[in-house]
């Protein structure tokens, strides 16, 4: 058959979804205020558990900065591996470790981001959800405040508020 070799390649839908999340994460750096001590050195994003988001964040780290701060992406297998970071993204597979992670990060200014139903009410400041096929995020300003983070009202208008 003439057209037998015309099978088109399937694009990577995972990468597209991760790209959207990465863009969100970049935007969070604009709409959330970290304490002055966090505005120097590298801007560290930690990922707890495996996630396709890592690849997109690594691409972002090559191209973008937060002011003068370069991005550094750190991968943590377990809570015990977590070190100081500006953002901690808790992958879906590590939702069960969220409470322990938050406890470990007490007294730091870390934006805790999750991706599970109800997590914004269980400690994370930002929680990714899907609404009508669209990626959106829940915002818990109180949880952000517990880590010394100030959230812009502009971000609040775009979020699904849970507190």
């Amino acid at each position: 058959m003439l057209a037998n070799d015309l099978v088109a390649q399937v694009p990577d839908g995972n990468a597209a979804n991760s790209k959207i999340k990465a863009i969100f994460l970049y935007n969070f750096t604009k709409y959330i205020e970290w304490p002055a001590s966090y505005k120097q050195g590298e801007f560290v994003i930690g990922i707890l558990g495996s996630s396709p988001l890592v690849t997109e964040l690594e691409k972002m780290a090559l191209k973008s900065k937060v002011g003068t701060q370069s991005f550094v992406i750190k991968k943590f297998k377990d809570v015990s591996d977590i070190t100081s970071c500006h953002m901690l993204y808790i992958s879906n597979s590590k939702t069960g470790s969220m409470e322990a992670a938050i406890n470990k990060l007490k007294k730091t200014s870390t934006l805790v981001i999750s991706e599970c139903g109800g997590c914004a009410k269980k400690g994370s400041a930002i929680n990714f959800v899907s609404v009508d096929n669209k990626q959106r995020f829940e915002l818990n300003k109180t949880n952000a405040g517990k880590f010394g983070l100030q959230v812009s009202s502009n971000l609040a208008t775009l979020a699904i508020m849970v507190d």
Binding site: P11, G13, A15, K19, I23, K63
Partner: peptide
């Protein structure tokens, strides 16, 4: 499918959140 994925992939990481929406 590819059209949509390409639109997303070609977006800058700095894309504003409203534009992203």
């Amino acid at each position: 499918y590819n059209e949509a994925v390409t639109k997303i992939q070609q977006s800058d990481f700095e894309t504003d959140i409203l534009v992203l929406s």
